[in-house]
């Protein structure tokens, strides 16, 4: 049995009076890629925001239950949110390159944590760009504005940027929804590479993508975790009828 990296127990999330996550229990193992599929508004993004506590910034949001990373409850008062978020990177559907050079985008995170040595920053930038398979495309123009990169390159830049602060977990919220097939396959192969060193959670509205990259898949429907299991098994022999309906395209 693999080591459990993230453990979610009896998780409930409310926005005001509206419950958007209903009693979810699940584990994510170290070094696995877990896909989360499900129709929109099922609470998938909310789950990611719970795991890195970005949800703290949402007015009116309430979280009950437990989320543990490496066995430690991340909602305890003693937990430093900034350290947690350093450990849990997140990539959004729309890439958000900062309006500065490629290099400065990559130096941004380390600088936030006090690293200022330029050699060191360059080193980090190179390593992370290599890890996100962007190095060869940008190595000669690190001083160019990041906004001039293509959409697919911007997404990989955001990935590289997330890697600069040495996270252990990376959350992807529909990272390929705006990308063309070639960029998508680059991002996917990068994710498979990253698996060696990181734990990955991937929300995708593309069931084929889930099938291609992930070890296990979880199916969410209207805030409930309907089914979680080996990706291959879940797609070939779903246990729940609703899962089957979703993957055969009977829901939106």
């Amino acid at each position: 049995m693999l080591k459990v990296k993230i453990k979610v127990d009896n998780l409930n999330v409310y926005y005001g009076n509206k419950q958007v996550i209903k009693d979810v229990n699940m584990n994510v193992s170290d070094h696995e890629i877990l896909s989360i599929i499900g129709p929109s508004k099922s609470g998938k993004s909310t789950l990611l925001h719970v795991i890195n506590r970005l949800i703290d910034n949402v007015p009116g949001a309430k979280v009950t239950g437990q989320v543990c990373i490496d066995g430690k409850n991340i909602y305890l008062d003693s937990v430093n949110v900034n350290d947690l978020r350093k450990k849990v990177g997140i990539i959004f559907a729309t890439p958000v390159p900062l309006p500065m050079s490629i290099f400065n985008n990559l130096a941004y995170g380390p600088r936030l944590h006090g690293i200022t040595n330029r050699e060191k920053l360059l080193d980090i930038a190179e390593n992370c760009l290599r890890a996100s398979s962007l190095w060869d495309e940008v190595k000669s123009r690190l001083d160019m504005s990041a906004l001039r990169l293509s959409g697919g390159q911007q997404q990989r830049l955001c990935l590289a940027r997330a890697l600069t602060v040495e996270p252990e977990i990376i959350l992807f919220d529909e990272p390929c929804s705006g990308l063309d097939p070639i960029s998508t396959s680059k991002v996917e192969s990068t994710m498979r590479e990253l698996k060696k060193n990181y734990t990955l959670i991937l929300i995708t509205n593309n069931t084929k993508q889930a099938a291609r990259v992930s070890d296990r898949t979880a199916f969410f429907l209207f805030g409930e975790l309907i089914e979680i299991g080996e990706t291959k098994r879940l797609f070939t022999a779903p246990k729940d009828k609703r899962t089957k309906d979703y993957i055969t395209g009977k829901f939106g």
């Binding site: 890195n52 970005l54 910034n57 900034n82 350290d83 947690l84 978020r85 350093k86 450990k87 990177g89 997140i90 959004f92 729309t94 958000v96 900062l98 941004y108 995170g109 936030l112 944590h113 940027r161 997330a162 600069t164 602060v165």
Partner: peptide, 23 residues
């Protein structure tokens, strides 16, 4: 200023003050 820029800072473990002054 797009909300996303703030989230980038928070996502990298930056504080609110850093998000304000840096971005």
């Amino acid at each position: 200023v797009p909300e996303g820029f703030r989230e980038v800072t928070y996502g990298l473990g930056g504080s609110k003050w850093q998000s304000v002054t840096e971005i």
